[in-house]
Amino acid sequence: CGYLPPLPERPRDVFTTPAINRGHAVTADQLRQVTPGVSTRADVQAALGSPSQTGTFADGEWYYISSVSQVRPARALAVRDQRVVVVAFDGAGTVREVRQVEDREMPRVAFVTRETPTPGTERTIMQTLFGNIGRVGPGSSMTPQTPGSAGGGSGR
């Protein structure tokens, strides 16, 4: 019956919103390969791959961060199942401890909304509106930008 046009797919789970796997998920059997006191940095690298992040100022801790984000209608991405695995090394570089951060340790933090301003060429309203009509070729400097507030040539 190859001649009949293919039937359209059956609409299945119409209303599901896609869940997207994020970050570097570490499975249970990968974790079993890392034994505290024995494995070194190279073993962890081989077993789990390079870490998502390391300690900012001390390289003694490797973090494997993963989460599942869900597209929600009319709202921002929702975070489901945020998971952090910490691999701590001692001075000699062997694994001291491997632990997974529990959910109760993850408080809900309100992020500060203030931003540090960056100086630079602010675009005038007129220029944003019509800055692009009749543009010649990409990146050409035909559209006159106001000389940067920080710049300004010092002629002879």
Binding site: G55, F57, A58, Q82, E102, E105, M106, P107
Partner: peptide, 20 residues
């Protein structure tokens, strides 16, 4: 640095947040 503190805290990494 402040943003890093916020994120490490919300990920439950308190010592990292304190260090930052």
């Amino acid at each position: 640095l402040h943003r890093l503190t916020e994120i490490y805290l919300s990920l439950g990494l308190r010592e990292e947040a304190a260090r930052t």
